[in-house]
Simulated scan of single mutants.
Amino acid sequence: MNRTRASGRTVGGLRTLSLQAPAVSLLLLWMIVPLGMTIWFSFQRYNLLMPGMTGFAGLENYEYLLTDPALWSAMGTTLLLVGSVLVVTVVGGTLLAVLFQQEFAGRGIARVLAISPFFVMPTVSALVWKNMMMHPSNGVLAWLAQSLGLPALDWFSSLPLTSIIIIVSWQWLPFALLILLTAMQSLDEDQVEAARMDGAGPLAIFFFITLPHLRRAISVVIMIEMIFLLTIFAEIFVTTSGGPGLATTNLAYLIYIQALLDFDVGLASAGGGIAIILANIVAIFGR
């Protein structure tokens, strides 16, 4: 009897594995082959402008990057950009989720409008902010400043990194709002009502009931956003091109410079390897 059951489990398990094997194999190839090629090229001398200069470079590409001040500037910019956007989106998303959970006229329309920016393509949103919002002469912010008797600000020259943070936060705030607002739907209203009857004010309810309830959703928002924010490129490419100087050059844009402007595949691949290590370190601390 036991042998029959064990045999049935084994046959069923083998059948399940045989059905899963093609999909798992394809997924592994899709992930491992590009990663393996990146690691391989990072140890090679491979510059498209110098086809005769090839061969195994060892750790030369990594040594060059690690001694290049541009790498450390880009890593600092990357971490500052990721941290700032996370603070803005998590704090703003939490407050907006609490606000949109309340009953008010036009709540459905307001929710749709608040979530809509997340569906705008990064390139389009960067162009809108550059030419319509932050333009020093014809932008909406310049018009508001002049209406108040203040001088118009050239955002991308005076505050380039702050400008990128504002644009990216505008894109990702709706994502945080969507996740946190969904989590708010499962909040026990009886618990909130009981707290009110016991004399708890809005701040006490927020810090001791709402915020602990959203803790898991906030961690999900942080992890997902962190993965994508480490690879921000389109907003920088469209608005500042990494400048002025290296002010807005993050790690992704530095790799782009090495690969598609300097045509150095070896250095770009080494930068990709460093980016992988940085992403894993950030993910460990973000848990």
Score class of each variant (00 low, 15 high):
residue 212 P to I: 05
residue 111 R to S: 07
residue 231 T to A: 11
residue 174 P to V: 03
residue 68 D to Y: 14
residue 110 A to M: 10
residue 207 F to D: 09
residue 53 M to N: 13
residue 273 G to Y: 05
residue 91 V to L: 15
residue 163 S to Q: 03
residue 104 F to S: 06
residue 40 W to T: 07
residue 3 R to W: 15
residue 64 Y to C: 07
residue 252 A to S: 10
residue 98 V to P: 14
residue 137 S to M: 14
residue 271 G to M: 01
residue 67 T to D: 13
residue 189 E to W: 14
residue 146 Q to D: 08
residue 169 S to G: 12
residue 153 L to K: 13
residue 79 L to R: 05
residue 164 I to W: 01
residue 181 L to Q: 00
residue 278 L to D: 00
residue 218 I to N: 08
residue 69 P to H: 12
residue 228 F to G: 04
residue 263 F to L: 11
residue 32 I to F: 12
residue 35 L to K: 04
residue 84 S to N: 13
residue 249 T to H: 12
residue 97 A to G: 02
residue 95 L to A: 15
residue 148 L to E: 01
residue 149 G to A: 05
residue 238 V to P: 09
residue 14 L to H: 02
residue 259 A to P: 03
residue 197 M to N: 00
residue 177 L to P: 10
residue 192 V to E: 05
residue 52 G to L: 15
residue 191 Q to R: 14
residue 14 L to A: 03
residue 283 A to T: 01
residue 86 L to Q: 10
residue 135 H to K: 06
residue 277 I to N: 10
residue 217 A to K: 07
residue 283 A to M: 02
residue 45 R to S: 04
residue 151 P to V: 00
residue 188 D to Q: 14
residue 162 T to D: 00
residue 167 I to G: 04
residue 114 A to R: 00
residue 282 V to P: 11
residue 267 L to T: 10
residue 86 L to W: 02
residue 200 A to C: 15
residue 10 T to C: 02
residue 10 T to G: 05
residue 231 T to R: 15
residue 213 H to R: 11
residue 32 I to V: 07
residue 121 M to W: 14
residue 64 Y to P: 04
residue 244 P to W: 04
residue 115 I to T: 04
residue 90 V to P: 10
residue 111 R to P: 02
residue 13 G to H: 06
residue 92 G to A: 02
